[in-house]
């Protein structure tokens, strides 16, 4: 049996047997990444709006930095967050290291620049269309950001999904700050890394296929939901 065949076979076996451990791992992956993306959206979307609509000193620097940070290596983010959360670090007293909260924080840091930079572009496009009318109606910039965020909601979905994709796919950051502890901080990607290190390549690849399928499922359901929302005329 070839490597590809055995990988597919173990993927199928994993999906159909779906034992408790795997379900737990998938559940944690989704919880961590969805939470991180929620945090990133709460920060990144308003930040993108502010960078598009407001004029303040240092704005261009922030834009360049954000664009550069879209490609931050997860390991570097993981290490930085590790040093922050470590007992010797500035946030050490909270004892968050090696917990799901630490993983959420690391992924939020990783994903926020992506959401912010991509949504800034959406705000720029919408603002060129809306600016005259909103200024004419007397909307201040803060209000305008809220209005655009609402009206551009369908266009803001892809930036958030891009962030979600990055969050679920990365292994470097969660490995360092989560520690890949069984039943506590073990997620899909760290499990794949672990199985690879054990030489269980078919199992690792099978998990990889499951991860891709999950990501597909999330993207498809968001797509369908936003289509439905658009159709309902909202």
């Amino acid at each position: 049996m070839s490597d590809v065949e055995s990988a597919l076979l173990s993927a199928v076996r994993l999906v159909f047997t779906l034992d408790r451990d795997l379900a737990e791992i998938i559940g944690l992956s989704m919880r961590v990444s969805l939470s991180a993306v929620a945090v990133a959206a709460l920060i990144g979307v308003p930040l993108g709006g502010a960078l598009a609509l407001l004029r303040f000193p240092g704005r261009k620097t922030v834009i360049v930095l954000l664009n550069a940070f879209m490609g931050l290596p997860p390991v570097v983010v993981g290490l930085a967050v590790y040093l922050m959360l470590s007992r010797l670090g500035p946030m050490g007293v909270f004892g968050l290291l090696y917990s799901p909260a630490a993983m959420i924080i690391a992924q939020s840091v990783l994903v926020t620049p992506i959401v912010a930079a991509l949504s800034r572009q959406v705000f720029v496009d919408f603002w060129s269309e809306y600016e005259d009318q909103l200024r004419s109606l007397g909307a201040g910039r803060g209000r305008a950001i809220l209005t655009l965020a609402w009206d551009a909601r369908s266009s803001l979905v892809p930036p958030v999904l891009a962030g979600f994709g990055r969050a679920t796919a990365e292994v470097g950051a969660v490995m360092i700050v989560g520690g890949n502890i069984d039943h506590v901080t073990r997620v899909m990607t760290t499990t794949i890394a672990l199985e690879t290190s054990k030489g269980n390549l078919a199992m690792a690849m099978g998990l990889g296929i499951v991860l891709v399928l999950l990501s597909l499922a999330v993207n498809a359901s968001v797509f369908i939901a936003s289509e439905a929302a658009a159709k309902s005329g909202r």
Partner: peptide, 10 residues
Amino acid sequence: VAAIELSTGI
């Protein structure tokens, strides 16, 4: 979800 996650994590 985000609020719950962070607080339960803590």
